[in-house]
């Protein structure tokens, strides 16, 4: 018995390899990619955030970077900008997405397909391209599309991106009118998943159009809304491309978001340690907000 056991173990290990070897090999590729391009940068950034970073010799400085960043007025300003941007864009975007989906859902299949495709199109274009288009729209002279529009109503041209008063709002406006395609696809899918008989039952139950909307449609679409809310907040906290392309955080830090601040700290001022610390504060914030959203909103979600 005892002499057989090791043999059996070895042969079963061999069999395991023969049967699943390829599988492990395939798993290995993404695992390696994850280790090299995600885990390693994250861990080294974490270490960096406690260092005075230098390519040749970094020095360990404990929590100094974190102390510095919390005393930095620009950090708080960028935090404020990011929060304003998020609060102003995410809910409005969800409402716009929802209304568009609701309208499209009532259409004939042919038109549904048309609008789905059209509204999804911006998602395919790169953020850079879209920003260039919007630069033209926001042009401060009366060549700009928006200013020309104001001119019709006899209003003076506005320096949209060039003054503190309107710069952040301009980015928010651009975001409102940006891509809702992905959200629309999601909403349409879950609207299609609500059984038609529920609405028929509600019709018989004397429900008005508004009651059907508030008591059936909206609650049943809540999981989708929650998903869009959480992912929307996460992307919004990391808003970067439009800031980088259109305002470079200016004027006077009016549009500096955390993500842009991190970029500046790292790649313009080469303070990699401080930038890492900022990144971790941002990451912590995102996790915190996401958890709160799930806790608060998912209590009465019907999956």
């Amino acid at each position: 018995m005892t002499t057989i056991a090791p043999n059996r173990v070895r042969s079963s290990a061999g069999r395991l390899w023969r049967e699943y070897g390829w599988a492990y090999l395939f798993i290995l590729a993404p695992v390696l990619l994850f280790l090299v391009f995600t885990l390693y940068p994250v861990v080294s950034a974490l270490i960096m955030s406690f260092q005075q970073y230098n390519i040749m010799n970094s020095t360990w400085i404990g929590f100094d970077n974190y102390e510095r960043l919390f005393q930095d007025a620009t950090f708080w300003k960028s935090m404020r900008n990011t929060v304003i941007f998020t609060v102003c864009t995410v809910p409005v975007n969800i409402i716009i997405t929802f209304v568009l989906s609701y309208l499209i859902y009532q259409m004939k299949t042919k038109w549904q397909t048309f609008f789905k495709a059209t509204l999804y199109l911006p998602a395919v274009a790169s953020g850079v391209t879209i920003s260039i288009v919007w630069l033209a729209i926001f042009d401060p002279t009366n060549v700009g599309l928006l200013n020309r529009f104001l001119e019709w109503f006899g209003l003076d041209p506005v320096i949209w991106l060039g003054q503190s008063k309107t710069a952040l709002f301009s980015l928010i406006l651009m975001n409102w009118l940006g891509s809702h395609g992905a959200g629309i696809i999601l909403y349409l899918a879950s609207m299609g998943g609500v059984p038609k008989s529920l609405y028929e039952a509600a019709d018989i139950d004397h429900a008005s159009g508004w009651t059907k909307f508030t008591r059936i449609t909206w609650p049943l679409l809540k999981p989708t809304t929650l998903y869009l809310l959480v992912t929307g907040v996460i992307t919004s906290f990391q808003v970067f491309i439009s800031v980088y392309m259109m305002t470079q955080g200016g004027p006077n830090f009016a549009t500096t978001t955390i993500a842009y601040l991190i970029y500046q700290t790292a790649f313009q001022f080469y303070e990699f340690g401080l930038a890492s610390a900022q990144s971790f504060v941002l990451a912590f914030l995102i996790i915190l907000v996401s958890v709160i959203q799930f806790k608060y909103f998912s209590s009465d979600v019907e999956y």
Binding site: L198, E200, R215, L220
Partner: peptide, 14 residues
């Protein structure tokens, strides 16, 4: 009238 549907059509979230 009142109707009982084949799939019952109960409001799942209520």
């Amino acid at each position: 009238i009142a109707m009982v549907f084949q799939d019952y059509a109960l409001y799942p979230h209520m």
